[in-house]
Design a protein around this nucleic acid. Structure first.
Lengths: 353, 353
DNA sequence: CTACTTGATGTAACCGGTTACATTGAGCTA
DNA sequence: TAGCTCAATGTAACCGGTTACATCAAGTAG
């Protein structure tokens, strides 16, 4: 009573957000009781609870996530590190992770490194404010990954590291099967890979599968891989480059669907019919793959599942995570490889693994 | 010296991350000095600084972002609220925001609401842990927006609200110009809009512009808008629906490029030539718009700039933000409207006959 | 020699929550 | 009426930083 406040419920300063102590003062209880009310603790009397709740509503109090996080020693936040947000692949990955995050009340924090040189510093900063990190393969050097993993929970997606749990797909085998299909079913002999194997572990695996299949059939690659980005525009570039070079290979195995779609859209304008003059395959099973003409033969990847699984691991309470989790892919035979629509409906083509 | 520690540099518990107090103890200084070292405060002696730095390196100390945020009363984090991550539009928006965020050392926190019913709660939680919020138009009800804006800095992108600063594009005028082009240059009379105006403020604005142009030329719409999603698949659906309905309109004005691309890819297979039988336009200037065949006439939007501007506003220190910032669009005339390649290089006014 | 200045460092409060433990008082028993 | 139990609530320490202010020693002017 030695401090005569005009309205007992007013927060310390008018412009400021009320804190738990403001609520305590306003409702004449201690901070512990306020905290109990916000946690629905059964130990607090109905009458007290109502009084506190009234003050909370009146002053518009919301517990600070920061204060909570500090006290709990966990942030309820999951970090995802990607090279960038472009393209449907990463969007699907994020949505997969998000689906498991929301059901646990965990927020998602996305960081695009964009190959920035200071990416490692940003990731470390991110690690400081998250409970776990999902990192896309190829975004950070192995030593940096090791450092992050030693400080907290890290899960790799579509990458590989000797000691960090990884969720991936067997892109190598899938690419080998796809390539074998082109060779065995369609009799193609001169194949070429489109994509930069050094660009990402995913592309590298696909390229390895491609050369595996070539080697298994005693073929040599029809030229170096066309080292390009993974976007539609690069597909257009590839088309022009191939056209200018004169004779085209029998088939082009593209590192992803967007590249393939760029080729699909550009080659006919340059006088090359698909699949008659050149067969084309993609990877990912993009929404456009089914709609492109000709419809794109590709490999379906459960990208959202990858994200979901990675998130589940990153948020798991117990240790003992499997070192490597491999999710199945599915060959999707459509027309761009040379199959006709009736072929495509035949069961043996859709090999599940 | 009354507490004989075996190794003076070991942190309190072996498994735990070292805190500032561990470093202080290990290097024989106070926490204030450690804090000064981590802030490169010139007041600390070179010798002391080295001693502290050595302990920091040896114990692998990293200041907790949480502790900092609590003390500074700011998180150095920017939140972005979107309906989802699908499609290139939102990716571009995020990348634009990210570009300004990184140069200020601010992290980005993305939340996809996916029209979840508890989205408002998630957003409030997000608001608790960010310094500012960028919210895509149409993701939250106006009252919720007002509540968020009263508690912190909020910037709307591509939306409208009477009291919240907004960064947008004049989609209505752009759509009207695009539609006028179809009517005046190509003489189309029976036009139809593809997209759900109630789905987002952006689509609504485009539909308004469409009807504006119709009204200005005393035309009536050739049927209700085709109320579909904004993805490629929906474009395929639209194509089938139009085909099944029998006679097609002269032109289809699509709410975005993906829808248009879906139509572009599907209609020819159903026997409708583009643009001869039906003209098609998009909106956004997607990477595929230039590569599609025929190349897609559309409206270019500076999406990354929208994101960048919104981020700059959301992070601005001073008040006085403009209520509404309108960024310019650009009509991109290609072939899907009926213009020929040579027309396209000339100003649209003289492309006729 | 004293008083004052200055630079380096330490002390302790604070940011906004949570929670172990302490306190209070009512109801009950012997 | 003392003694006990138990439910409701309060006190204060803690999470990991930052920083205003205090302290202290050395240097310098008078």
């Amino acid at each position: 009573m030695d401090d005569p406040t005009p309205t007992p419920g007013s927060p310390s300063a008018p412009g400021t957000k009320p804190t738990i102590r403001d609520i305590a003062r306003a409702s004449g209880v201690s901070v512990a009781t306020v905290s109990r009310v916000t946690h629905d603790d059964p130990r607090v009397t109905r009458a007290t609870k109502e009084r506190v709740q009234e003050a909370i509503d009146r002053l518009g109090y919301r517990p600070s996530a920061l204060g909570r996080a500090l006290s709990y020693r966990r942030t309820n936040t999951l970090g995802i590190v990607l090279p960038g947000l472009g393209g449907p692949y990463f969007a699907a990955l994020i949505e997969g992770a998000e689906s498991v995050a929301v059901e646990r009340g965990v927020a998602i924090n996305v960081l695009g490194t964009h190959l920035r040189p200071d990416a490692a510093a940003s990731v470390r900063q991110l690690a400081e404010r998250t409970d776990g990190l999902i990192i896309a393969g190829g975004t950070l050097p192995a030593t940096e990954l090791a450092a992050l993993a030693s400080a907290g929970r890290v899960v790799l997606v579509a990458g590989d590291h000797e000691s960090i749990p990884t969720v991936a797909v067997d892109g190598r085998t899938a690419a080998a099967e796809l390539t074998a299909h082109l060779i065995e079913i369609h009799g193609h002999r001169r194949l070429r890979f489109v994509g930069e194997p050094a660009g990402s572990p995913d592309t590298a695996a696909r390229y390895e599968g491609f050369t595996d299949a070539l080697a298994a059939h005693d073929l040599v690659e029809a030229g170096e891989p066309l080292r390009l980005g993974l976007d539609v525009r690069s597909g257009g570039l590839a088309a022009r480059e191939l056209h200018d070079a004169g004779v085209l290979p029998d088939a082009l195995v593209c590192a992803n669907d967007e590249l393939a779609i760029g080729l699909l859209a550009t080659l006919p304008g340059l006088g090359h019919r698909i699949p008659r003059d050149v067969a084309i395959t993609g990877f990912d099973d993009h929404a456009l793959a089914e709609i492109a003409s000709p419809r794109l033969t590709t490999v379906h990847q459960p990208i959202e599942d990858l994200g979901a699984r990675a998130a589940a691991y990153a948020l798991a309470d117990d240790g003992g995570l499997p070192q490597r989790t491999v999710l199945p892919t599915r060959l999707v035979i459509r027309e761009s490889c040379g199959c006709t629509e009736t072929d495509a409906s035949a069961p043996p083509q859709e090999a599940d693994r």
